[in-house]
């Protein structure tokens, strides 16, 4: 990675990091934390779906595993919150590894892979909704004890920074993957699995590594969610909503790009707020807009907002050159 790879990431993250000291509005900070959680989940999806071309429709399974591991290990095992945060990520990665191993070994691709991930998320949701350990349908509550060593903070700004730190780490990691051999393998598998194999790439191992990493990142989003809201139930943790957000955000923002998930999450959440502002508190209306946007983007701008901006920039550059 060169300075040119890192600089845009540093600038964007630094600008976002300036918000908490400048803006004290809880609504804005809340919005930002939530958006960063979505962005992180979407970044996870983007590694597997964007770079690897394997569209998961059930990333909730990783989000929920991270979230529940964080909560359950604190509540029932009395472990420290920072420790459970790490364990939650590990648990998500493990689930990703197992699901990836089973699905990719069976050669599931395309719609079949989408279906099987969807089914795994549903199984986890039903089990979490019935099991005693997860609090069943009533949900699980992490005890409120606001101390930094408990990963609980008085100010929402602290959560913004932590969320931003995680998002920044994944931005850098994604850029590094793009530049590394692994990224090239992953893109090769996305573009043509058989051709990639003919060139000596092992698609199974590449996809397995991608889903494990992807799951770890999305699980981190789940851990952060649990720690911020201190409450979970099966429909939050393993609900279809997070699978949808994790998938729609990168597609809107720019699938298979470093900034796509973050841009998409900001755009979606912003739009969601705007819609409920205009239309009033009508349930589901923001998701209607997301769905329409998903179709419109696939139809007219498959490269997403990031791609559109790049296209505009190229146009801007070409014009003066043509004038001379």
């Amino acid at each position: 990675m060169t300075a040119r790879d890192v600089l845009p990431i540093v600038v964007v993250v630094a600008l976002l990091a300036l918000i908490p000291p400048l803006v004290s509005s809880n609504t804005v900070l809340n919005f930002l934390v939530f958006t960063l959680i979505i962005a992180l989940a979407a970044q996870g999806w983007n590694i597997l779906g964007g770079y690897g071309g394997q569209y998961s429709f059930g990333h909730a399974v990783f989000f929920g595993t991270g979230a529940y591991a964080t909560a359950v290990l604190q509540v029932h095992a009395g472990l420290n919150a920072w420790l459970t945060f790490g364990l939650g990520i590990a648990a998500g990665a493990l689930v990703g590894f197992v699901i990836g191993f089973l699905s990719f070994r069976s050669g599931l691709r395309g719609s079949y892979f989408a279906l099987v991930t969807l089914a795994f998320a549903e199984v986890f949701r039903i089990v979490a909704n019935a099991a005693g350990l997860t609090g069943g349908a009533a949900g699980i509550l992490i005890k409120l004890d606001v101390r930094p060593e408990n990963f609980q903070f008085q100010s929402r700004g602290a959560f913004v920074w932590i969320g931003l730190g995680l998002v920044a780490a994944v931005l850098l990691a994604t850029r590094a993957i793009e530049r590394a051999r692994f990224g090239a393998y992953l893109t090769a598998v996305r573009e043509n699995e058989d051709a990639a194999r003919a060139l000596g790439v092992d698609p199974f191992r590449v996809k397995l590594a991608a889903i494990t990493l992807s799951a770890a990142v999305t699980a981190a989003a789940g851990c952060l969610y649990a720690q911020y809201f201190l409450f979970l139930d099966a429909n939050i943790a393993y609900g279809a909503w997070i699978s949808v957000e994790a998938l729609v955000a990168p597609i809107i923002g720019g699938i298979g790009t470093v900034f796509g998930p973050l841009v998409g999450a900001l755009a979606l959440q912003g739009l969601g707020h705007l819609t409920s502002h205009v239309a009033g508190e009508v349930p589901g209306i923001d998701l209607v807009v997301f769905g329409v946007l998903l179709i419109v983007m696939v139809a007219f701008a498959p490269e997403g907002i990031v791609g559109l901006l790049a296209r505009l920039r190229r146009l801007g550059r070409r014009r003066p050159a043509e004038a001379t």
Binding site: F57, S111, V288, G291, L294
Partner: peptide, 14 residues
């Protein structure tokens, strides 16, 4: 895949 998913999201939430 994505368009039919988008349709599902739109219809369900409408």
């Amino acid at each position: 895949l994505l368009v039919t998913l988008g349709l599902a999201i739109v219809i369900e939430n409408a």
